[in-house]
């Protein structure tokens, strides 16, 4: 055995449909000395196709099953603490991230009871309102790991599938590696690294995307342009928070309810 090994250099790739392809454009860029894939609009197109394909299966999974999968994400994160440490995520933030995955995992089979209702009506009917996923959600994610978790987990737990334009690429791709080994079905989360300003307009204008979360957009002019493009097919738009992004706060239910649609059913009581 030679005493020195050849080092294994890592290229951080995209995460689309459950696999880790390079950008179809072949482009990469350097982030802190690491090679990272630079996503193109065609990667974005492929990601939306993958998300759409995965959507009915994920929305149709039982809430209990979705909760288990999110809990599994937390388990796998726990096992990778050291790796996230080397990427600059401090222990306190990682604790908060893992706790947040578990918090959202718990909501999977409870949000329906809290946000749905049995409505009193004047007639012999059961009148039930139940929340349903919006569909494919495009997310421009903030750079911090807790921020990424705080926009990704609520979209997933409610049965949506997600296309994420990542802020900090190494942490985001490492999270994708966690998701890929956590029983998250391929296509439920699709993650693109690169310049959000290049790909986000295509995401915002895409007719097969149902909601757009702009939490990670810091430039107000870009946010306004994206919101305008999103109006084309009446996407739900979540604006960047006006009071800054302190993700350590209790997120409340709003991140989940913003990505749910209410379906109300009238059913005759028969007496």
């Amino acid at each position: 055995m030679p005493e020195t090994r050849v080092s294994v250099r890592k290229t951080y790739k995209l995460y689309i449909g459950g696999s880790f392809p390079r950008s179809e454009s072949g482009r990469t860029y350097l982030v802190d000395g690491d090679n990272v894939a630079l996503a193109s609009r065609k990667d974005l197109r492929d990601a939306v196709v993958a998300a759409r394909k995965a959507q009915p299966g994920w929305a149709g999974a039982t809430a209990y099953n979705r909760g288990q999968v999110l809990y599994r994400v937390a388990e796998m994160l726990e096992a990778r603490r050291a790796e996230f440490g080397t990427l600059g995520v401090d222990a306190a933030e990682l604790d908060a991230v893992i706790d947040r995955w578990i918090w959202y995992a718990g909501w999977s089979d409870k949000i329906g009871q809290v946000y749905g209702a049995a409505n009193p009506v004047a007639g012999p009917y059961f009148n039930l309102s139940a929340p349903e996923p919006t569909g494919v959600v495009g997310v421009v994610a903030p750079a911090s790991f807790l921020g990424l978790t705080s926009v990704l987990a609520p979209a997933m737990v409610t049965g949506n599938t997600v296309v994420v334009l990542a802020g900090a690429p190494q942490v985001a791709v490492t999270l994708a590696e966690v998701l890929a080994t956590s029983d998250v079905p391929g296509g439920v989360v699709n993650l693109l690294t690169g310049r959000a300003a290049e790909t986000a307009p295509w995401l915002a204008a895409h007719d097969d995307v149902n909601a757009l979360d702009l939490t990670g957009v810091s430039d107000p002019q870009l946010a306004a342009e994206l919101e305008r493009a999103a109006a084309g097919n009446l996407k739900r738009v979540l604006r960047p928070p006006a009071d800054g992004n302190d993700f350590r706060r209790d997120p409340g239910l709003q991140p989940m309810t913003a990505l749910l649609e209410i379906k109300t059913v009238w059913h005759p009581k028969g007496f």
Partner: peptide, 9 residues
């Protein structure tokens, strides 16, 4: 149109 279309349409 210059943007991606969806099967819903």
């Amino acid at each position: 149109t210059g943007h991606y279309a969806g099967p819903d349409y």
